[in-house]
Structures are given as structure tokens and as C-alpha cells.
């Protein structure tokens, strides 16, 4: 009899305790997942809304005091056709903060690294200025800073994000073509826009998984007419 009671109690207790443990673990696990879900910053640019005013380029220049001749963010302009059937396409270009960034792989000192939130940054104190990351970037988004002699590029205005402000190019875009936010949050405006529109990325075949998305992007416009010139800021090329 004693043995049976002990057996029953043990089994009941065991099941009860296991049940409580499992339930609490599930609740805690869910809470944990929700609270620590990693942010993944991204940007979406609606090219239908871009009017090519270059205010993003200028705001970026002033924000970071970027020297002449080099850009963290700029607008590529493509003109197609012959008069009167002509078309002008604006493609704002910046670092794509790729999921698989070739610049991070190539950096010999680890000066270029990817943060947990996906932003690819350069630590100028560790950069030796070998320019290998510049060679590795398929989007030509990097440059050698003429003053600091280190690699430089867009960092999604990290200092502003830390204070809860949007990047300066997003802030200044008069057509509101740019949207910035957390890609992992399904309620964020960027997720909603990406859900409601067909989006593209630049040079998808490179397999770098860029996190700057474009709406209404003409891939051919981006890849054709690439400049081959060395010394002029804006030069028209005729194929």
C-alpha cells in the first residue's frame, strides 16, 4: 500500500512538475523570443517617387563632411532614347548593407564588420587603407577618404539611428521615396511597403543579398552605361 501511494504521488508530482516546468518554459521562451528578436535594418527606395533632386546626396555630404569628389550616397542618372521619345531614370545608390557582404570577407584586419543589426560599418582606427574592400564592393559604394586615408561608406547614419532618428537621406527626401526601418518587424513601415509592392535589389545575381530594396527598378538601366572614365565628375557617355 505504502509503495503504491508513493508510486502514485511520485507519478502525479512528476507529471505536475513537468507540466508546470514545460508551461513556464514555453511562456518564458516566447517572452524571450519577443523581447530579444534581432533587428535587421534595411531601406526601401521607391523610384517612382524619386525626382532626382540630389537632396539625399547633399544631406549626406553635410552630415558627414564628405570631401569633394567622393560620395557616401549619390543619385545615378540614366537617360534613354532619342528626342522626342526620351526617358530619365534616377537610381539613388548607397551601401547595400548586404547579408553576405564581400567587403567584410575581404578586409584583412576586420576593420570592416557587420553589426548584429545588419549594418556594415568601418572602424577607421583599424583600417590600414589597403582598398581591398573597395575592390570587393560590386556597387562601388566605398571610397578611400581623401583626408583620413581609410575606407569609408554609408553606415545608415548609425549615430542618428542610435538616437532613434532616421538616416539623413531619408529625413531629407522631399518625395518621401526612401523608407528606413526594421526588416524583421512585420509591423514596421518598411515591411509593410515590401509586402505591398514588388521590390528588387541591385545585382541580385551577385548573391550578396542586399538590404536596400528598390521599387520599380529597371535592372538594365543600372547595369548599362557604366562609366569608364577616371577624372570627370559628370560625363555623358554615348553608346
Amino acid at each position: 500500500m505504502k509503495n503504491v501511494i508513493i508510486h502514485n504521488i511520485t507519478r502525479r508530482n512528476f507529471l505536475k512538475k513537468t507540466g508546470i516546468l514545460a508551461a513556464s518554459a514555453t511562456i518564458l521562451g516566447c517572452k524571450e523570443t519577443k523581447s530579444t528578436q534581432q533587428k535587421r535594418y534595411a531601406m526601401v527606395i521607391d523610384l517612382e517617387k524619386c525626382i532626382g533632386c540630389h537632396s539625399c546626396s547633399i544631406s549626406c555630404k553635410t552630415q558627414f563632411d564628405v570631401p569633394l569628389g567622393v560620395f557616401r550616397s549619390w543619385v545615378k542618372i540614366i537617360e534613354r532614347g532619342s528626342y522626342p521619345a526620351v526617358k530619365r531614370i534616377f537610381i539613388p545608390v548607397l551601401c547595400n548593407h548586404c547579408d553576405d557582404p564581400p567587403c567584410v570577407k575581404g578586409c584583412p584586419t576586420g576593420a570592416t564588420y557587420q553589426r548584429a543589426d545588419g549594418i556594415v560599418v568601418v572602424n577607421p582606427d583599424d583600417c590600414i587603407g589597403c582598398k581591398y574592400c573597395i575592390q570587393n564592393c560590386p556597387y562601388n559604394a566605398r571610397f578611400l577618404h581623401p583626408i583620413t586615408k581609410t575606407a569609408s561608406k554609408c553606415d545608415f547614419c548609425l549615430h542618428r539611428i542610435k538616437q532613434g532618428i532616421t538616416p539623413s537621406c531619408v529625413n531629407t527626401c522631399i518625395g518621401q521615396a526612401r523608407t528606413f526601418g526594421d526588416y524583421n518587424d512585420p509591423q514596421s513601415s518598411i515591411s509593410q511597403i515590401l509586402l505591398q509592392n514588388n521590390s528588387q535589389v541591385l545585382l541580385e545575381a551577385m548573391g550578396t543579398n542586399p538590404r536596400v530594396f528598390y521599387i520599380n527598378l529597371d535592372q538594365n538601366a543600372y547595369t548599362t552605361g557604366k562609366t569608364l572614365l577616371w577624372h570627370n565628375d559628370f560625363i555623358r557617355l554615348h553608346d
Binding site: I77, E79, R80, K131, T224, K226, W230, D233, F234, R236
Partner: peptide
């Protein structure tokens, strides 16, 4: 729609 003209920034030849 051809020809195509492109306005872009300078892309330097960094390795000399």
C-alpha cells in the same frame, strides 16, 4: 530605347 547615357560619380582606379 537607345542610346543610353549615364551620369555617374567618379569611380577611381584605386590600385596603381
Amino acid at each position: 530605347m537607345n542610346p543610353t547615357s549615364t551620369y555617374d560619380i567618379i569611380h577611381f582606379v584605386y590600385w596603381d
